[in-house]
Design a protein around this nucleic acid. Structure first.
Lengths: 253, 253
DNA sequence: CTGAAAGACTCGTCATATCGAGTAGTCAGG
DNA sequence: CCTGACTACTCGATATGACGAGTCTTTCAG
């Protein structure tokens, strides 16, 4: 295998390694040749080899570990879990706890709450005015002591202020839907806007994933009859989570 | 601004530029300083500057154009569209056509259909045996002549073979749900599994996005009463699309 | 005035080289 | 046998230098 001109060498090498992975010549958890070995194999410099491996890492096909090497990632990660479909059943507690327990792992989380003023985008999502008071809570969710999800939620104090659920995590009830039930507000629906991008350094560090890997970003808002009552930004590693949604199709009219 | 030791220089530079973008010092479509200028500013080599810019590009904050420079990307892309929520109403035609027209753009697509044998993963998703005959259709969806979405769908010929909808695009009806209505099968629900990763070279080229930017991958399956009748792999640029899901919360029992 | 050519600028690709840091295997000593 | 130190190996970060290719501005000829 050697590179031909006309297409960047690092892309050709990435193509070659990718097909070896997809066709099974390199199996999950197999070790790729070391960078110096690949330099010899393809007759290129280390920069080119590293660019090729970076391509594959961004595609989620390999992981690199300093001091050890590069390894093929399992194509269907064993950590596959679901989130969105949870709402089809009546969530009894926090969706995270349910889905994590179902996967045989121990759910845990820590958080920090504080009152603050709504920024412009948050005010927009909550249907309130910028500067209005909100309760801001940052969560770090762990499965078997490993951080797997980050979330920052905002609740308008115009709704929760002075009630028993003003402090999101002070009561015995977990989960947004049951909590709002406690003050007589039944959440009727939830909207999730899903996007993807690379992890920011803080997120990569906290989630213990290599810097630059793709994450899924969910903008989730709970509504009571078109009145937003809670909105959150959720970040999960796309290597660990698959978001699964089930949508009903109404019968033909 | 200078780098301090203890944290890689390229991350510090990325942090600095990121906060300038997020705080508004650099606005959408503003041009960042050129790579040589950033080398001077921070006193580092070009490799470091490029790594910092690559971080920001993967995060979707900037775009780079050869010969022109690096530019701040609009934080809320004007091309924001929705997909998933479409199923709440009864889709009249193809969801893509509906959502694209709603955004004031002209939907178009081309495709290639062929009969083939189901691979293992596809057979698994369709609840058939590997090797069973399926109709495979690759779509390229365009909005205003620009490719924005790729899709490869599979339908078991055990269901559609010999019917009027065997060829997905030969009839006058578009959209999976109406098509199956034609043969008396009412699709009851759809499952979408969402994940994210970097674009593969073919996808990056076809979707006309820079190589390596994150894409959203949707594994969509249509069901008639728990019987899968169509499954598809859909790829969209996360820079162009936001997937929006609306989920109903049943009343308290 | 217009259009084409030249040059300056910018990013893309790649080579060579150095040092640091994390990992793992080997081997001697307790 | 277990443990600790040494060493070889691997990836991470960074410098310097070079050439190619796309873009834009300016200049000059027609």
């Amino acid at each position: 295998m050697s590179v031909f001109s006309g297409r960047p060498a690092y892309l050709q090498i990435a193509d070659d390694l990718r097909s070896q992975i997809l066709e099974g010549a390199l199996q999950a958890d197999d070790k790729l040749p070391s960078e110096p070995a690949l330099m010899d194999d393809y007759g290129v410099s280390r920069i080119v080899v590293r660019q090729a491996l970076d391509v594959l890492r961004a595609e989620g096909l390999i992981v690199k570990q300093q001091g050890r090497g590069s390894f093929v990632r399992a194509l269907v990660p064993p950590t596959k879990r679901v989130l969105g479909h949870l709402y089809n059943e009546r969530p009894e507690g926090s969706p995270f706890a349910a889905v994590t327990s179902a996967g045989g792992q121990r759910p845990e989380w820590d958080y920090q709450s504080r009152k603050t003023a709504a920024s412009k985008v948050i005010a927009d999502r909550l249907g309130i005015a910028p500067g209005d008071p909100v309760m801001r809570t940052s969560y770090r969710f762990l499965a078997d002591d490993e951080p797997v999800m980050l979330s920052t939620s905002f609740e308008p104090l115009a709704i929760t202020g002075g009630t028993s659920i003003e402090q999101p995590e002070s009561g015995t009830v977990t989960g947004v839907v049951p909590r709002f039930d406690q003050i007589g507000l039944h959440i009727t629906h939830v909207k999730e806007d899903v996007n993807g991008r690379a992890a920011r350094p803080y997120e990569a560090e906290t989630l213990q994933v290599p810097q630059g890997v793709p994450v899924l970003v969910i903008e989730r808002t709970y509504y009571v009859e078109d009145q937003p009552v809670e909105t959150a930004d959720i970040v999960v590693s796309s290597a660990r989570y698959v978001l699964s949604y089930r949508l009903e199709i109404p019968p033909r009219t």
